[in-house]
């Protein structure tokens, strides 16, 4: 036995850490029971969203509140769509997609320079970006509001995009720098010998290799921007510039006690993420973690 520890470990590499629990069935049962209790607690509110969105207002007031309706209806979704939801959805798409492109694009350019040059000033600039990781958006929102107003960008989508980009940069840059740094030096050198310039190296070597981390970080930045509430709350006011989190809040004021309509709005507002969860769960979860877990 002792002569072949290598074989021993290899044989078990396929097993997950929990396997020893199999030999302790009662322990497994208790653990699963706790897991099931959490399942109810974490899933029930989502289930509540879904079943309430399919109820009529009448059914909501008279039906059994914790059971699905016997006569489901999609009228609430129709109401939400007729209340300008399409426009709000489009606004959110414009803001989020532009933010992601600007954040990831400018981070990639800077990450390349930060990794490739030994310049002291560049190092300092990178450290300043890292300090930005510690500063919450809320700490800068007052001057941003005044600034955006003075620039004439108050209540415009551009006025939402610009500060979102600034606050998305630090983490994106950190993740991309960590990734680009891992590209072996020999690859740069061989391309450099062929006389390739920085842009060629960036587009032909760095970008293709970084696709996985670009995808993850783009998903992360998209979600941040999609769900951001403070910027639109402070920087917009009209229906033309309303994005989804603001739309939910204003629906809440408009349909105060019409809970089914609100739950329909809540579900529609998460549509891209729900679809991503259904069709690309692995990518979505990896993106959610961004660079925090490896």
């Amino acid at each position: 036995m002792n002569a072949m520890p290598e074989v021993q470990t290899k044989m078990h590499t396929k097993r997950s850490p929990g396997f020893s629990l199999r030999r302790h069935p009662w322990y497994n049962v208790v653990f699963s029971l706790l897991g099931f209790i959490w399942l109810i607690f974490s899933f029930y509110p989502i289930f509540y969203m879904l079943m309430t969105s399919l109820r009529s207002q009448q059914g909501f007031l008279t039906g059994i509140p914790w059971m699905p309706s016997a006569h489901p209806t999609i009228e609430n979704f129709v109401t939400v769509l007729q209340a300008g939801f399409g426009q709000f959805f489009l606004n959110s798409v414009v803001v989020s997609v532009s933010s992601v492109i600007l954040i990831v694009g400018s981070s990639l350019l800077s990450a390349y320079v930060i990794v490739r040059s030994k310049n002291k000033f560049i190092r300092l600039v990178f450290n300043v970006f890292l300090v930005g990781l510690a500063i919450p958006i809320q700490a800068a929102i007052i001057p941003i509001y005044i600034m955006i107003t003075k620039m004439g960008l108050y209540d415009t989508l551009l006025g939402l995009i610009l500060p979102s980009v600034a606050f998305g940069l630090p983490l994106t840059l950190l993740i991309l720098v960590n990734f680009v740094r891992d590209i072996p030096n020999e690859l740069y050198e061989s391309m450099g010998l062929e006389g390739a310039g920085d842009f060629t190296i960036l587009f032909r070597l760095v970008m293709p290799l970084s696709i996985p981390s670009i995808v993850s970080v783009s998903i992360y930045d998209f979600i941040q921007s999609w769900n951001n509430f403070l910027f639109p709350l402070v920087l917009t006011q009209s229906t033309q510039t309303r994005v989804l989190p603001m739309a939910i809040v204003s629906f809440q004021g408009q349909y105060t006690m019409n809970v089914p309509v609100l739950m329909a709005a809540v579900i529609l507002s998460a549509l891209p993420l729900i679809l991503a969860y259904v069709f690309g769960r692995r990518y979505l979860l990896k993106g959610l973690l961004a660079g925090f877990g490896k």
Partner: peptide, 16 residues
Amino acid sequence: MMIPAAVFFLIFALIP
């Protein structure tokens, strides 16, 4: 190449 990120961050995060 450093300009886009630096400008965004300077104007809309650091200066505020």
